[in-house]
């Protein structure tokens, strides 16, 4: 069997196996898998409303996935996407409501603010790694908590003990009446275009610039890169900063698109952590991230419809979704299995 066929078969088979095991779970717990999966399907693609909301859900996942993937390519494990996203969210919301500007300036400004805030948050980890060899995993995990509680404290201060910031001005909003009209009042917003632009940007940086080549070289082998005259430390800081920029933009999607404000959070949003899985599913490539984010976002949003339309309890739904993702992620096992099979056949 050629590699091409295997490459095609692996994701398809993994999804099918995931669906089958999920179906078994539903059967064992006494629910109808057909009903369950059709609820999942209509929850994702049922009508323009659900499609709109599915895309809205995918948007921040793309950016979170890009953030993780970009750092990965330089050999860095950015666990701090969650924190960078929260800081970006706050920055975008603040620019959104505190300043009044025409739309053409306001939206870019809010986006830049979010990107800069996220970048700064990741820069801290990159700087510490480069200068003092502090492991970025520890720093970024801890910076998640600092981000969460600092954002909460700032929101409280900005609003005199309130729970959420004012709503952002219309001029900073990524929502549009047009998108609402064609998707039957869903919360779809223009953020998806920004997310896709960022996918292109990441591809461009990595594949078409010298800097991107250096970043990748550092990721492959730091010593070799160093020997070749590249500054490893500089590239580590740069990779983290760009990674944080993507994460910050992910937060801007929530601030300017979905929620139109920033509110005090009792816990993490989870988008940043899911971003790790999205990046891994997508093999850390820009296009792969789109695939991973689409899978994650659709399952996450579509699964809301399973308790609604099929009466399957929340907990079972979470198990099924986790199983599907598990099997998609363990594509390697299937690949090895397929290769073994073809070898055996050839041996006969």
């Amino acid at each position: 069997m050629s590699n091409r066929v295997i490459n095609l078969l692996v994701p398809i088979i993994s999804i099918i196996i995931g669906l089958i095991v999920g179906a078994l779970v539903m059967l064992v717990s006494g629910y109808d898998p057909v009903e369950g999966y059709s609820a999942l399907w209509t929850g994702i693609f049922g009508d323009s409303y659900t499609i709109g909301n599915t895309i809205r859900q995918i948007t921040p996942y793309i950016l979170a996935g890009l953030a993780v993937a970009f750092a990965f390519r330089t050999g860095l494990f950015n666990i701090g996407v969650e924190g960078q996203l929260i800081i970006g969210w706050l920055a975008a919301a603040w620019v959104g409501y505190a300043i009044e500007l025409p739309k053409v300036i306001h939206i870019p400004l809010a986006l830049i603010a979010a990107a800069a805030a996220g970048a700064f948050w990741a820069f801290i980890a990159g700087f510490l790694k480069a200068k003092f060899k502090v492991h970025e995993v520890i720093v970024t995990i801890m910076l998640n908590y600092t981000a969460l509680y600092i954002a909460n404290a700032i929101i409280r201060n900005l609003t005199d003990g309130g729970f959420k910031t004012e709503r952002i001005h219309e001029s900073a909003s990524l929502r549009s009446d047009f998108l609402r009209d064609i998707t039957d009042n869903s919360s779809l917003h223009y953020g998806i275009i920004i997310a896709l632009l960022m996918v292109a940007l990441m591809w461009f940086i990595l594949e078409k610039t010298t800097r991107g080549y250096e970043l990748k070289a550092v990721g492959f082998n730091q010593n070799a890169a160093d020997y070749a005259g590249m500054s490893v430390n500089k590239n580590i800081i740069l990779a983290m900063t760009i990674s944080g920029m993507f994460a910050g933009l992910g937060g801007a999607m929530e601030a300017l698109g979905t929620f139109q404000n920033a509110s005090i959070k009792a816990g993490f949003t989870g988008i940043g952590f899911d971003g790790i899985a999205v990046a891994l599913l997508g093999a850390n490539t820009p296009l792969g991230v789109i695939f991973g984010a689409s899978l994650f976002g659709s399952l996450k949003y579509g699964s809301l419809n399973m308790p609604n339309a099929a009466g399957i309890p929340e907990e079972i739904v979470s198990i099924i979704i986790a199983l599907i993702i598990f099997f998609v992620a363990s594509g390697y096992i299937i690949r090895v299995g397929l290769q073994k099979l073809s070898k055996k056949k050839e041996g006969q």
């Binding site: 009042n185 919360s187 929620f259 509110s263 989870g270 949003y301 809301l304 308790p307 609604n308």
Partner: peptide, 17 residues
Amino acid sequence: YLQSKSDADYESNLTAL
């Protein structure tokens, strides 16, 4: 009833009902 897993689910759940 419908349960919300994150803040983003409130609108969708209300609309579904």
